[in-house]
């Protein structure tokens, strides 16, 4: 495990924002750390970087205890927390050169990073004049400068347009191919599910789910999606016959799937009661919905 926490808790005054969190982030994974805004994601990340003193519990990174091995652990981590931290009065390259000075990295590496995040052309422009996407890319270049084994990114796609999101996603997938571990937080599952190998879902400071992305898909219960001419009548009819209707809108209604047999029964029942069935099919609940269910159930 690259990151392993046990019973991690944190309180701001009387308010407990992280409750007994036990994260398990395997090496070489892209770990999506998901949760709605205010769930405790940034607080957790700040504890992982030793920016906040942990209230209770322990943090091990690369198998070492964080407090006692702070510097050796931090030297192998690159991070981007919330907004990229950039000196606006310096150029993009100067921002990188300043960090390179602190990390004792050469100028060659700075140029490589500029190239990697496609900022070579804007390297000598003041970072204050960068667009949000450029700032975010510069933030990622800063995080990657010391060639870290673990990359911790807090909402790196916040405020980016779809193109920017795709670029960052592709960049991260490329990095994991080179053996790095990426821990990435987001409040949008859709953004993460395309690249994450593992997922942790946090809500109100508690870990609601942790596992591979397949585990998450597997707990999603399949549904029967029925399209009819009159969904309200159809729903009432099904309810009278003891079927559960989980959702309904103008064109579709949804019933939990149990067997193929049941799909046939529903179809017969509807047709015999003069409801026109346009389509009937089995479908998996999408992850976005699942995510909302998990975070709302608390």
């Amino acid at each position: 495990m690259v990151i392993q926490t046990q019973g991690l808790s944190f309180s701001f005054g009387n308010q407990q924002v992280v409750k007994s969190l036990s994260l398990q982030v395997p090496a070489g994974s892209i770990y999506g750390f998901l949760g709605p805004n205010g769930a405790g994601k940034t607080t957790t990340i700040k504890m992982l970087l030793n920016l906040l003193q942990t209230g209770e519990g322990s943090i091990h990174i690369f198998g070492q205890e964080l407090q006692t091995n702070r510097i050796s652990i931090l030297s192998q981590i690159g991070s981007l927390i919330e907004q990229p931290a950039i000196y606006h009065h310096l150029t993009g390259k100067e921002n990188l050169m300043n960090r390179a000075l602190l990390l004792q990295v050469g100028e060659k590496r700075v140029d490589e990073m500029l190239n990697l995040v496609q900022l070579t052309g804007a390297a000598n422009k003041k970072a204050g004049q960068y667009s949000l996407g450029m700032k975010q890319r510069l933030g990622i270049a800063l995080a990657l400068l010391n060639d870290p084994k673990l990359l911790i990114l807090d909402e790196p796609t916040n405020g980016l347009d779809p193109n920017g999101i795709i670029e960052i996603r592709e960049l991260l997938m490329k990095l994991v191919g080179t053996g790095k571990t990426v821990f990435i937080s987001s409040h949008l599952l859709a953004e993460i599910e395309k690249m994450a190998t593992h997922v942790g879902i946090i809500n109100n400071g508690e870990l609601m789910f942790q596992g591979t992305i397949h585990d998450l898909q597997n707990i999603s219960q399949p549904l029967i999606n029925i399209e009819t001419d009159n969904t309200v009548d159809a729903a009432n009819l099904l309810k009278r016959h003891n079927f559960t209707v989980t959702d309904i809108n103008n064109d579709h209604l949804y019933v939990p799937f149990t067997s193929k047999q049941q799909v046939g029964e529903i179809n017969t029942l509807l047709v015999q009661n003069n409801v026109t069935v346009y389509s009937i099919s089995k479908q998996h609940k999408d992850l976005e919905k699942l995510f909302l269910d998990i975070t709302k159930s608390n």
């Binding site: 700040k46 991070s79 927390i81 960090r99 990390l103």
Partner: peptide
């Protein structure tokens, strides 16, 4: 947050 998460 960045200068305090440097390996220094």
């Amino acid at each position: 947050k960045t200068i305090f998460s440097l390996p220094i």
